[in-house]
Design a protein around this nucleic acid. Structure first.
Length: 481
RNA sequence: GCUCUCAUCGUCUAGCCUGGUCUAGGACGCCUCCCUUUCACGGAGGAAACUCGGGUUCAAAUCCCGAUGAGAGCACCA
């Protein structure tokens, strides 16, 4: 009675997890799965758990775990339980949970729901090939099922899969069902101290009290296996939601062949974490209104797991770039300078004042933080042909006069007042009198050496009076020669 | 091969559940124009899609069936 009341009155706390395996750098797909889980937890005032799935000792590497942790932290997807923060259902690394797996493994073995199998790998490969040839679904034959293979002769531990139909409700896709006959007795552990994926997941999700399993579509086929295991162990079934995959332009699962797949690469290329988060959230999901640029709090508020797209989404870098530039426009020069820290040399960092000026006048040209390099270049004087100095049909002699006129005006402006507004105040009356193109074009070319560049006033504010006059004199000399 | 899943502009998507208001909406990209000394930013506009075939219905992007296409999974990886 009391239990029943508790059930009615206390809503179960949502507990979700991201379970990456440290066999590679933090992948964009993993990051999105993490994001959706994180949002779902925040939205429901639940817990977001990080679990490191390092059962494959050969392929796992601590350096990848480090990368995953750094990547998630950079993205701002902090976890409530997991490595570094702990929690009451730990440890959160599978390699540290061997005793737990062993306990359940022994239970299954004792209850005769699992058995030792002595089949060799070659044997199994051969069987599989023959089955494929006959047009059957490849699965284990169940040869050792009733052979009572002793532990010391065992190659692997298998689970006795029951037959029948297994169906589950997927939050995103609706009812999905499988014929258990096609599954066969799955391998759950190499030995009692070495569990395999499908088994470890079931044990962990249960012992960590996971309520919702939100993961990639590539796990749909694993779900019936895990449900079978849960049933044999008497565990409750969590709710499932399978996210569509992130695709490359050829519509295949995203891979290194086409694009950067690790989060770190995006960081290094100069993307802002909030832009990447925003973009990734929009891959397969959309709010009911048409918001595109959204702060994370807004995303949490509007997010709806059931409204997630079913088909895979192609990763479109151009849209990421656009979003990134939107976020960059919202930053102050000071913030951008601090964010760009890593991509600046020590000398440049000491030149902070100048770079701040440059960011102020030039950030509208930036799409990524790394564009700051190109931005700095665009304020350098590039080598140019003297013909470039002439605006349309203006003869060189006139151009020279205009430059000299500008130089005279500029030399009368004090070093201190050498900023856009004052410069415009000085030059524009002259330009309006003689023709804007005639005066401003040669001035801009003299300052940049380029046919496309920021405006003359912007450049002069950044480079300062002395350098500006030097460049103008170079142009005048060129025209004399 | 077998199993599962999916299908609206080039791309991300709205609409589909609860058929008519859809001559299918938004965003990125692209094109044109405006602003402007050039470029970028910004502003205005434009081209651009319901995979196909049946059915149900007065009416289908929306419901049903089939075909086609695409993807994922079929490990002693996770």
């Amino acid at each position: 009675m009391l239990d029943l009341l508790k059930k009615i009155f206390r809503k179960e706390t949502v507990r979700v997890r991201i379970a990456p395996s440290p066999t590679g750098y933090l992948h964009i797909g993993t990051a999105r799965t993490a994001l959706f889980n994180w949002i779902f937890a925040r939205q429901n005032k639940g817990k977001f758990i990080l679990r490191i799935e390092d059962t494959d000792l050969e392929r796992s590497d601590p350096k990848y775990e480090k990368d995953i942790i750094e990547g998630l932290t950079w993205l701002g997807l902090e976890w409530d339980e997991g490595p570094g923060v702990n929690g009451k259902y730990g440890p959160y690394r599978q390699s540290e949970r061997l005793d737990i797996y062993e306990k359940y493994l022994k239970q299954l073995l004792e209850e005769n729901k699992a058995y030792y199998c002595s089949c060799s790998k070659d044997e199994l490969d051969r069987e599989r090939q023959e089955q494929m040839k006959r047009g059957e679904a490849p699965k284990y034959s169940g040869k050792c099922r009733s052979k009572n293979v002793p532990e010391n002769e065992a190659q692997i531990i298998r689970f006795k899969a029951e037959s029948g139909t297994i169906s589950f409700h997927d939050i995103i896709r609706g009812e999905i069902s499988f014929d258990a006959k096609l599954i066969g007795d799955i391998a759950i552990a190499k030995n009692t101290r070495t569990p395999l994926y499908n088994f470890a997941v079931v044990i962990d999700d249960y012992t960590m009290r996971i309520t919702h399993v939100i993961r990639g579509e590539d796990h749909i086929a694993n779900t019936p296996k895990q449900i079978l295991l849960q049933q044999a162990l008497g565990f409750p079934e969590p709710k499932y939601g399978h996210l569509p995959l992130i695709l490359d332009p050829d519509r295949s699962k995203m891979s290194k062949r086409f694009s950067a797949t690790s989060i770190n690469e995006y960081k290094e290329q100069g993307y802002l974490p909030e832009a990447l988060i925003n973009f990734i959230a929009l891959l397969g999901w959309h709010p009911t209104d048409d918001s595109e640029k959204m702060e994370i709090s807004e995303i949490i508020e509007k997010f709806d797991l059931e409204r997630i797209q079913k088909g895979g989404a192609i990763f479109d870098v151009q849209k990421l770039d656009w979003l990134n530039s939107q976020y960059i426009q919202g930053k102050s020069p000071e913030e951008l300078f601090n964010l760009a820290g890593d991509s600046l040399t020590e000398n440049q960092k000491r030149d902070k004042e100048r770079i701040l000026k440059l960011l102020k006048v030039g950030k509208s040209r930036m799409r990524k933080l790394s564009d700051i390099k190109a931005l700095m270049d665009s304020f350098e004087l590039n080598a140019y042909e003297k013909e470039l100095l002439n605006w349309k049909q203006t003869p060189p002699s006139k151009t020279k006069e205009y430059l000299e006129g500008s130089e005279k005006i500029l030399s009368e402006i004090s070093e201190k007042n050498f900023a856009q507004r004052e410069l415009e105040k000085g030059i524009m009356p002259f330009a309006d009198a003689e023709g804007r193109g005639e005066v401003l074009w040669p001035l801009r070319v003299a300052l940049s050496g380029q046919n496309k560049s920021p405006g003359p006033f912007e450049i002069m504010e950044v480079i300062g009076k002395e350098e500006a006059l030097r460049r103008i004199n170079i142009a005048i000399k060129k025209l004399e020669s």
